[in-house]
């Protein structure tokens, strides 16, 4: 197309991209961490049909799964401060990601827990295990193995979802690309680096999860 890529431009702004990638990873790390905690909590509360908490978890999961992250973030970042609840940008983004991811993780854990047969629970009971011992020694290890692929997919999902955090004024990859396009009109370079940035983050992770999933399947428990 008769258009040379401006390598000097790319070299010049690479450090900024690396910085933005660091931010994305950091957001994703905390988002995944809290999502896992929320998800595990919701899944266990629902699995054991604990009254009140179980319904609360159900409402949360519906709200979280049926609204987009963009809207959740707008509400958290612009809406809540107006009634006296303030967040800084980073906390807001992590809160949004965790609110979104928690329900996805909960569904993944739930799938794992539901895959455990009644007989497993009964045989645990019959040797005198308590409820919490049942979860710890019998249910969770098996549920985790079943849920692992879905959990991995959710990590990828959350990493991709971070692409909208620029709306809460975070200098992530998207906002950097947008700024460079606006300031220098170096559209191709900026977009190229944007795609490269996401691929560098996502491809190894996705490959790792696929590899792990295959290993897990071969080592599968099977009765």
């Amino acid at each position: 197309m008769g258009y040379m890529v401006d390598t000097a431009f790319i070299v010049k702004f690479t450090p900024l991209y690396i910085e933005a990638m660091g931010l994305v990873l950091e957001l994703c790390f905390f988002g995944v961490l809290f999502s896992l905690i929320i998800g595990l909590f919701c899944a266990i509360v629902r699995y054991y049909r604990i009254p009140v908490l179980r319904s609360a978890a159900g409402v949360y999961i519906e709200l979280s799964r049926n609204t987009p992250l963009v809207i959740q973030l707008f509400f958290l970042y612009f809406g809540l401060p107006r009634v006296g609840i303030t967040f800084d940008s980073f906390t807001c983004a992590v809160t949004g990601l965790s609110f979104l991811g928690g329900s996805y993780m909960a569904e993944a854990f739930r799938g794992g827990l539901e895959a455990i047969g009644r007989g497993q629970i009964e045989s645990g009971l019959s040797i005198g295990l308590s409820r919490s011992q049942l979860v710890r020694y019998v249910a969770l290890p098996q549920a985790l193995a079943v849920a692992a692929p879905a959990l991995g997919a959710n990590v990828i999902f959350l990493l991709k979802e971070t692409s909208v955090v620029s709306i809460v004024a975070l200098a992530d990859l998207m906002s950097l690309a947008k700024d460079l396009i606006g300031l220098y009109y170096k559209t191709n370079e900026a977009l190229l680096m944007l795609v490269a940035g996401y691929l560098i983050l996502l491809l190894p992770l996705s490959g790792l999860f696929r590899f792990a999933e295959r290993r897990l399947r071969y080592a599968g428990f099977g009765n």
């Binding site: 991709k160 998207m174 947008k178 491809l203």
Partner: peptide, 13 residues
């Protein structure tokens, strides 16, 4: 693998 928003940028810009 690439976020939809990135595709949106690619096509729009």
């Amino acid at each position: 693998i690439i976020p939809v928003l990135v595709w949106l940028f690619i096509f729009y810009f």
